[in-house]
Simulated scan of single mutants.
Amino acid sequence: MHQQTASRTPFSESPLTSAAKLSVQGVYKTYATRGKQKLTVLQDINFEIFPREFVCLVGSSGCGKSTLLNIIAGLIPPSEGRVTVDGQCVTGRPGSDRGMVFQGYTLYPWLTVAQNVAFGLQFQGMPKAEQRERVRYFLDVVGLGQFAHSYPKQLSGGMKQRVAIARALANEPAVLLMDEPFGALDAQTKEQMQQFLLELWERTHVTVLMITHDVEEAIYLSQRVYVMGSRPGYIQSEITIPLPEHRDLDIKLSSEFVAVKRQIIHALRDDALTA
């Protein structure tokens, strides 16, 4: 395990290359129902995400977004197909290659903020001194260094989610997976967290795959958006976001932003009409 220092930018790697960081190939998911019939939830899912990309998956409720993310995380197996990270097949639960941030904060209430962030590092056998340094660094990255000794119940919803993100980042995953991480927040806090996450991504350039039902959120955060169709879930379209990497919230009012929003909404509407 390498030494983490505050002078080093985490997740630093070469610029975007042709080698995919995350690859989803021919993924199907079916469940047995009564009798001999099977319910197909996901059908022939194929896409790639490249190093330092921020990509969002959007789709209507019930299209299989969360199921797909759970397969990528290794929480459930695909019925067919495979998922690879850096060319290695995903066969188990999230580890050093895949960090996961859920909609719920999933913090341990009996542990302090620092202890929550350090939780995964303990299982790596990391020396205590390096754990403390790593935790201090990533709490500073998410702007919560002064709350290291606080407990989750003492934090706001947005602060709890920052702790969850810091915990995932502390393991320096190859890919950060996010399952509607701001879905439980009020509108104002949600926008603040979107801006925070984008600034964090600009700073770390960790590769991110995030699912959301919020079209504006997907456009604001990502460089590409995959639109999922439903019954069964499939990749309906891929949309490149023609916006500069650095964005502020006012960009949501721009004509370019509105045009992409219209394109995604029409894709979702077309799926609803044909479902």
Rank of each mutant, 00 (worst) to 15 (best):
V55Y: 02
A272I: 13
Q194T: 08
K190H: 11
V90H: 00
I264K: 08
A170S: 12
A19Q: 15
E48V: 11
G92V: 01
G183A: 08
A187V: 13
G99I: 05
M210H: 12
A168M: 07
S96K: 15
I264Q: 10
G157M: 02
D250L: 15
Q161V: 07
H213A: 06
P181I: 02
Q263D: 14
S79K: 08
Q188G: 02
F138K: 02
Y105P: 02
N171L: 15
Q146F: 09
R269L: 12
Y220W: 10
P78S: 10
V215C: 01
I251D: 05
S96Y: 06
L22M: 10
H149V: 14
Q103W: 07
S150Y: 11
Q43M: 07
A148I: 09
A184E: 06
Q236A: 13
H149F: 12
D270I: 10
R98K: 03
I71M: 03
N46G: 03
E245G: 03
C63Y: 04
V113A: 03
D86N: 15
Q161G: 01
P10A: 00
A6G: 05
I76Y: 02
I235V: 14
T17D: 13
E245A: 15
A19W: 09
V55P: 02
A275H: 12
S255Q: 15
V83I: 13
F196I: 08
P77H: 05
S222C: 06
R132I: 11
I45T: 03
G104K: 11
R262H: 13
T67D: 07
E238R: 14
V208P: 00
H2D: 14
L169Y: 02
I235L: 10
P15F: 03
S222P: 03
S156P: 00
G143V: 09
R34D: 13
L273P: 00
T91S: 11
A168K: 05
G143M: 03
A129G: 00
P10M: 05
Q88K: 15
E53G: 07
R132C: 11
